[in-house]
């Protein structure tokens, strides 16, 4: 599978010209070939991660990576931690949601403190859009955005693209329906950017109260009727619906949402017969997705997405620290 989904290295400019960014803040800054470059780099880590007991590559040995999560997270934090450790880095996690930030220290002060500890890379999640950019502007090391508010979650979009590419053999020319709470979703924004950039037809399927204003300006078509939006789709990408959206402000109730926008086996029939079903997790089974769709052995890619997440994050950590490690051509 690897050979069919990766390009020869000669496709890319040499050295650091293949990925000209100090940080990974969002998909918005990337070109299509830079996305491909990361996906190709991730393939080798998929192989390593599947290679039995010894999953170690020590190219980041001696480097310190700080995972500063100003918003609660389990899976993304774990994924970044495993990615860093498999590359041999010293990984430190800071759960800022319960630290000095609560005592009134400003975000910049916290960032400067972390910077003074000489991290070689920082992975940051924050509940406020733009917060990761703000930190990246102040620190000396590469910063990876692990999700900022509703803005971007670039590694999620990269791992989703990798999953699609491995499953369907390509991630261009496809029809992809992104369904659910697009308004509040950074996953949706990063995926819209990445998937349109790679040349796919992207559809948004959401209730009008959860459709972002002017989202059509991001080169997507919008649907409020799910059956229509799923028609002939190659990929159905579900989004998580936060519980607090179902209290009447945006949606009347969970059961009404399920009735209108839940992905049931019957609704999935509208998509192409071999369409895949994706979800960034964690899922609300029985709300946005039925269990027998989520657990479908051939069509659901949900656990594969988690697997690709580690590989993509290993690729990102490797690429962004090359300058620091003095890799030839990366200066």
């Amino acid at each position: 599978m690897t050979s069919a989904t990766t390009r020869p290295a000669s496709d890319y400019p040499p050295g650091g010209d293949a990925f000209r960014h100090r940080h990974l803040i969002g998909i918005a800054q990337l070109t299509p070939w830079e996305i491909s470059y990361v996906l190709d780099a991730a393939e080798q880590w998929v192989e390593l991660n599947r290679s039995g007991a010894a999953k170690h590559d020590d190219r980041l040995a001696g480097l310190t990576i700080i995972n500063a999560f100003f918003e609660n997270s389990t899976r993304t934090l774990l994924s970044f931690e495993i990615a860093g450790k498999r590359l041999g880095a010293d990984v430190v996690n800071m759960h800022a949601a319960q630290s000095s930030v609560k005592k009134g220290e400003t975000l910049i002060d916290t960032a400067m403190t972390l910077n003074a500890m000489r991290a070689d890379a920082m992975v940051i999640r924050h509940a406020s859009s733009g917060a990761v950019q703000l930190i990246a502007d102040k620190v000396d090391c590469p910063v990876l955005n692990a999700g900022d508010g509703r803005h971007e979650h670039p590694t999620q979009a990269l791992l989703d693209a990798l999953t699609i590419r491995r499953r369907l053999g390509r991630v261009e020319g496809l029809t992809i329906a992104i369904c659910g709470d697009v308004l509040h979703s950074r996953v949706a924004r990063s995926n819209i950017l990445a998937l349109t950039l790679l040349g796919n037809e992207v559809r948004i399927v959401a209730p009008p109260t959860l459709t972002p204003p002017a989202v059509d300006r991001m080169h997507v078509t919008t649907f409020t009727d799910m059956d229509e939006g799923l028609k002939d789709a190659d990929v159905v990408m579900m989004l998580r619906l936060q519980n607090e959206r179902m209290d009447g402000a945006y949606l009347p109730s969970a059961r009404e949402y399920h009735a209108l926008y839940g992905l049931t086996p019957k609704r999935l029939e509208k998509a192409k017969p071999d369409a895949i079903v994706m979800h960034p997790g964690p899922m609300n089974r029985g709300v946005e997705i039925d269990s027998n769709v989520a657990d479908h052995p051939t069509r659901s890619t949900i656990t594969e997405q988690v697997e690709m997440g580690v590989a993509v994050r290993m690729a990102c950590l490797d690429i962004l620290t090359r300058r620091k490690r003095g890799v030839p051509g990366w200066n």
């Binding site: 859009s129 509703r150 803005h151 204003p213 002017a214 300006r217």
Partner: peptide, 15 residues
């Protein structure tokens, strides 16, 4: 304000 910019930046906006 509601619009492409607020949507791209992921900022809460009003019409």
């Amino acid at each position: 304000t509601d619009g492409e910019m607020a949507t791209r930046l992921g900022l809460a906006s009003a019409p």
